[in-house]
Design a protein around this nucleic acid. Structure first.
Lengths: 230, 230
DNA sequence: ACCACTAAATGAATGTCATTCATTTATAAG
DNA sequence: CTTATAAATGAATGACATTCATTTAGTGGT
């Protein structure tokens, strides 16, 4: 009775997990990309990226691990699905609804916040051709439209976005860094300038030091890049 | 004759590979952290990070995989050794030898170039307490000294460096991205602004598009952050 | 010279993964 | 009712990092 449990568990999976078939579509099985993405997201929320294994993902869908491979080519594919889903969560609404500076600010903070919870995706995004990521492409379209409307010369738009994105990805890592990451430890006396600078920042008592650095860099980029407009 | 080959192969490893004992030190075995770092670096040059396995690393040192664990706690430790070594390759010489802007430029380009060849280390660095990384700490000391001498208020130095570093790490990924990463593919008609911007950049015929974005962002950061000086 | 002591190496497990494959099942179409 | 096909099964496979009991070879003290 190898595959007979499939049907039995299929119902419970769809009901209990929220993965559903699209009505009117020719559907053979329980799984689809949307369901896999949803389940992966839930798994990550609960167990973190260490808990995201193909086996665990399959189990959360009441399915055998090998079944996943009928829908994704590899685990990397799952990460790509996640990335594209997250791109749809980034707030681009301010483009076209106010000054360019404000739109970039809103977008950048939102982008950083979303991916700071998903830093293991960053190495994947960096090499991901946007062709395979419709939501990501949609984000780029809105953002580049905003840049164009703000008066950016067309040939500088992509480079400007890439520069901002690079800063955003790097900053996403900062958010997850331990608070004591800059503690010089036993080398404190050997590094007076750095130690002093670290102490001085600590004395400011910021709740989220990463936010200070992000704000500083972002404002610099906004005003620097803003100067490129014609 | 379990460990008897150790001596026989020890000689050939030291001779053939370049890992050597420090003279006058109490030394029991063939391996030490410097030798492991060197071997790992060579392995990465030859086979890339996919080829950097504990087994391959051990083999390149003519040693059993388990022997490595007498010197490093885990593979992550090996990556940390690598990171700290690479930090020593970053060019900080311009600090104290010219205007702050030029020093930052030299440092940032060098930093990006070094780590663009080692992007798999970036997720590790991001969470690495500097305590364990003397070379990295030395870099920070030089850089923060440069910022202080340039007139930066002490409490802004670390945040400014972090902002630059975030941009640098993100940009290091860009260098490795495939050339066609922004090809909109079949969605081209649906994304006119973005497609136009990509085409327009492509028509410029830059050899290394990543360099354009990096230059753009870096100059923006330099002039923006430079304004913080008292 | 002899005798521990200890750092360092060995090779044989272990356990966790992603991934593959032959086989089976269930659904949809003719 | 038959047949084709998408999708699931579970039992391998193979790559890994990591652990452990055991063995080895120097070093320092006597």
């Amino acid at each position: 009775m190898p595959a007979s449990p499939a049907v039995a568990t299929a119902g419970s999976a769809a009901a209990g997990q929220g993965s559903r078939r699209r009505a009117g579509r020719p559907v053979g099985g329980v799984l689809d990309k949307a369901g896999i993405t949803e389940a992966a997201l839930r798994l990550i929320e609960k167990k973190g990226y260490d808990g995201l294994t193909m086996a665990a993902l399959a189990r959360s869908l009441n399915v055998a691990p090998s079944a996943l491979y009928n829908h994704v080519k590899s685990k990397r594919d799952v990460l790509l699905l996640l990335e594209d889903h997250l791109a749809s969560l980034v707030d681009v609404s301010a483009f076209g609804a106010g000054p360019w500076e404000d739109a970039v600010r809103t977008w950048a903070w939102s982008y950083r916040d979303v991916f700071s919870q998903h830093t293991p995706l960053i190495p994947v995004i960096a090499v991901l051709p946007v062709t395979d990521a419709p939501q990501t492409l949609a984000m780029y379209e809105t953002v580049s439209g905003g840049f164009r409307d703000a008066g950016f010369p067309e040939e500088r738009i992509v480079s400007s976005i890439v520069a901002l994105e690079s800063f955003i990805f790097g900053s996403a890592y900062d958010v997850t860094a331990p608070a004591d990451i800059f503690d010089p430890g036993t080398m404190a006396e050997a590094t007076p300038s750095f130690t002093g600078a670290v102490r001085s920042l600590a004395e400011q008592g910021h709740e989220r030091p990463a936010d200070v650095a992000f704000s500083l860099g972002l404002e610099a980029l906004i005003s620097g890049l803003g100067g490129l407009r014609g």
